[in-house]
Amino acid sequence: MQARDNFNITHSLFLLLGGVALLFIFAPLAGMFISVNAPHLFEAATDKVVGNSILRTLLISAAATIVSALFAIPLAYILARKKFPFKGVVEAVVDLPIVIPHSAAGIAILGLISRDSALGAAASAVGLNLVGSPFAIGLAMSFVSIPFLINSARDGFAAVPVRLEQAAETLGASRFQTFTKISLPLAGRSVVSGLLLMFARGMSEFGAIVIVAYHPMTTPVLIFDRFNSFGLAYARPVAVIFVAVTLILFIGLRIYQKRKW
């Protein structure tokens, strides 16, 4: 009976179809790793430009995630708990960065920080040029990745029973204490998942960043630059190193997340 359950036709078909999906993700990446030229890989691994771009990408994406979280988590909580007019419109706005082309997102952000804008003019007045700065990269990363944090955290808060928050209030907790001691810890797994997704999505961004800041180069821009200037043989080692670093980082973070939550 057990064997019949394990090997029924539907599940076997699903396994086959799912295997194709898995192969679709795995094969190009595996092919990239296999076909990389060893001397070129060594050269890229010892290239300071590559190392600096990876460090820059990780640091800016982490900073963008942390700063965005200060705004995204409260919004996620409100969306999970409150009913208000045009809530559907607000939720659609949150999802906008996922559905619009990222080059268009880059153009929108460029409009926000160029010298013609209020923000750009204010920065210019104190001697700062926002276009082509780490700030611009962070903005582009935040813009395209913030929906992942908001949506994940919102689902997490929505899954926390309202009763627990009410119980905390009858025990003397303020709304803020209830949030920090009950809602946030109980939604922690989803919030952390959202943070990781946002961080990952931010550092892999290319389309919006290449418009607001070609320099200083993040790794996705550097891969594009190497491909454009020198061809596949020189772009591939950089891509391999970046994918390997992100893979190790995310496996580590996921293991930590599973242990803690």
Binding site: Q166, E169, L171, L186
Partner: peptide
């Protein structure tokens, strides 16, 4: 007066204990 400032204790039907 908000719930947190009332001299009231409440036992909920499902007990509402904090699982964390």
């Amino acid at each position: 007066v908000p719930a947190r400032k009332r001299p009231v204790g409440m036992l909920f039907q499902d007990y509402a204990l904090f699982p964390n």
